[in-house]
Structure formats: structure tokens, C-alpha cells
Write a protein that binds this DNA or RNA. Sequence first.
DNA 1: ATACATGTTGGAGC
DNA 2: GGCTCCAACATGTA
Length: 264
Amino acid sequence: MEAVPLVQPLLFAWPADCSKDHMPEGPSIVILKEAMAPFEGRKLLAVSGSVKAFDIQLLKNKTVTFKTWGKHFLLCFPKFTVRIHFLLFGSYLVNERKEATPRLQLQFANGEVNFYACAVSLLNQLPDELYDWSSDIMNSAWNSRKALAKLDSIPDTMVCDAILDQHIFAGAGNIFKNEVLFRIRIHPASLVGHLPAAKRQQLVKGTVAYAFDFLKWKKAGALKKNWKVHTKKICPRCKIPLHKSYLGKTKRRSFFCENCQKKY
DNA sequence: ATACATGTTGGAGC
DNA sequence: GGCTCCAACATGTA
């Protein structure tokens, strides 16, 4: 009979795409906020890290709450806000550490969080003064009508750039771009102004819908498994090779099917 | 091992 | 002033 360990190992394996690896897109920041729930409203007993832009000791002994806007993670204090942006390579660990020096480490009575390789800035305003919640694709205040109006105002923009525009779709990133455009069968180089109204609505609805699929899949460790075109070589629908190119002003890699996705 | 990637910014140059 | 372009940055993986 096989021996059963009396104590479970302290470190456990995270699902292949859960929050240990890439943070950047909005749903991952929502997962971070959920992971921070034990610290919500708690006092910061100690603060350390390599942030140089401001004196992080300003946060010590203060009570903090958390908000998210798109890809921004916000530490909220009564008179100011600390914004954390993970860019491409940022990461965090709750009640765990790794070799690298954290950009910011927050210690509470019931645990700690470490943020690595992220941009940390002090904003002398409150979140409500800084952010329009109706442009955050994950926020309950999200407003599709406003997003459509913003699209109307940029007719000469390629859709691949429009999805990445944080003023319109805060929280959407490059995975969104590729997956949403495949789902709604629009070629990434289409101009926003050339899209029929129904297609623009699909663009808005589809981006929000993908955000919640992304969230669900990421939590289940099944994000990559559900990619249809992002990083893929063959169209899952018509089976011809996908194109990969760097389109638009953003020049981010686009994966798309010339056959299934219509150019407007 | 060199390149590449779920991103943004700030400054140069028009 | 404002727009656009690009370099710079940060890190893990193939």
C-alpha cells in the first residue's frame, strides 16, 4: 500500500493558465481583485519594494480597498490612489514569494502580496475622479451605446486597432482582438467606418462576451485550450492555413482567416 | 541563445 | 499645439 503524505505540500500546482503567468488583460485583473479579497479593508502593516517614483511608506498603517479598471489594478486610499499596471511581463503572488525583488510588497496581519515587474504610480485623485467606469468591459457600469458612439467617431481606424483602444474597450488586449474578430467573422484590417451597423454591434457585444468567457476559462485553467485562432496555424472552421501578420497602427500580431473573416 | 510575447509611455520629429 | 512613430522597458520561455 502506498504511503500517503501526512501533510500536503505547501506549494501546489496552479492550472496551466491561471494567474501565475500572464496578467495583462482585464479578466486577469478581475481575478487578482478576487484573490485580494482577504485584504480588502485591512490595514497595511508594512510596505516594501523597489518603486522609486514615490515614497511607498506613505501607504504604511493605512487601510486599503481595491478596484479595477480595464488592465489597471487600483489600491484605494482616502486621499489618493496607487495604480498598478502589469504591462506585458508583470506578475503577482499572494502569500508566496519568488527570487526577484518585488516592485511592491504589501504586508497585512493575515498575509501578504507581492507585485513584480509592474508599473506602480501614485495618483493624487480618487478612482471616481480618474476613471470612466462605463468604458471598462468587465464593469457593471459598462455602456455599449457609448462604445458604439466612440466607434462612430473613428471611421478610418482598423478594427484591429479599435479593439485595443483602452478608451473604448478598457481591458481588452491582443488575445481579445484575435478571438473576437474570428468569432464575428470580421477581417482585422477592416475599417470601422465600413462596418455595417449590425457588425459594429457584434463587435461591441462580442468583446464583452469574450471578456466573460476569458474570465471563466482562465479561472478553470483552460484559456489557451479555448483559443480558436490566437497563436494557431489552421482555421478551425474551414481548415485552411491562418494568416499571421502585424496589422494597423498598433502592429500587434493578428491571427485571422482570409476565407472566414470578411474584409469591409 | 536569440527572439518573441496577453502593453504602455514619453520623447523626437513633423 | 497636436499627431504619429518608435525606442525603451521588463521577464520567462522556446
